[in-house]
Design a binder for these strands. Sequence first.
DNA 1: TGCCGTCCCATAGTATCCCATGAATTCCCA
DNA 2: TGGGAATTCATGGGATACTATGGGACGGCA
Lengths: 169, 169
Amino acid sequence: MTHFLGTHQNKLDAKGRVSVPAAFRAALRSLGEGEAGGGLILRPSHTHPCIEAWPAPLFQSLTQSLDRLDLFSEAHDDLAAALYADAYPVEADREGRIVLPDALIAHAGLSESVVFMGLGRIFQIWEPEAAARRREEARARARARGLTLPGLAPAPAATSRPVAEGGHG
Amino acid sequence: MTHFLGTHQNKLDAKGRVSVPAAFRAALRSLGEGEAGGGLILRPSHTHPCIEAWPAPLFQSLTQSLDRLDLFSEAHDDLAAALYADAYPVEADREGRIVLPDALIAHAGLSESVVFMGLGRIFQIWEPEAAARRREEARARARARGLTLPGLAPAPAATSRPVAEGGHG
DNA sequence: TGCCGTCCCATAGTATCCCATGAATTCCCA
DNA sequence: TGGGAATTCATGGGATACTATGGGACGGCA
């Protein structure tokens, strides 16, 4: 799997650890076969009460574009602050768990259970109920947006042949 | 067969497994000869109480446009959450069975028996009675609409045969 | 020296793989 | 064209591997 898919719920223990879902671990491994693949960059989402998790390689490619900016420009300054200042690199232990920084736990309002929400190239970590609300909202907004993806209209004209059972043709 | 046709009923066992109908398995194989072909993406239908099953290659082509979107845009956020967060990749075991995630079983209200409904390029998984109702409804609406398919307009007499069903309750 | 963070080990529960069986279908040959 | 044999399909169950989670030990820093 090259993408983070699905929603998975795990428990945050007293030490602030959570198991990264096995499916996500597999995706991470496939992203970077070396050691960087296991790495993650955690940062607070700017738009939602949740933690954004970036695979290290993807985050690096993101910052490369930033590195091309003039070091003394305002643009660089702002972007750098927005991107780096709140970012925490984490690494999974041998059991595949990561430790969530307190600041991020607070930002996402996490308690005992947390859910990992796959968003394709990245994933997010949510408080379970907030995550459910968010999915609901995203669905509504995506629909309002007109589902601007080619082919997303489910099940087109194929219904013209509803049943073809026991064909003796 | 390159399309999913017909309606097939199989049993969901205690472990949450179902056999994918052999005809659908053949279609899947022909879609992607490599490894991706055997893969399926399951997601809850947003419009019906059923599970939508997408062949992995088709789902990928669907998401390619999404992957080109700016990761920080609202559009990406909403669409990614709507598309990916409820999507579960599954792979058939050597007997051709897949495991349905609990969340999707709940969404579709599945119990002992499930129905696979071919919709051409994708298929759906239904609770049997709900599936029957759905076919009924689709049939009625299609008829009301005059079964107008683009390109099918100059309909010869043959198309007037709307349904050839072997009725079983 | 005490506290905190990290690493490592242990375990229960669960999911995955694999083999086995009955039934139905298809194919082949008479 | 009919009968028989070999496949294929759908389903059940057991063994194995893995995941998730808890707790303890070690080392670093204050």
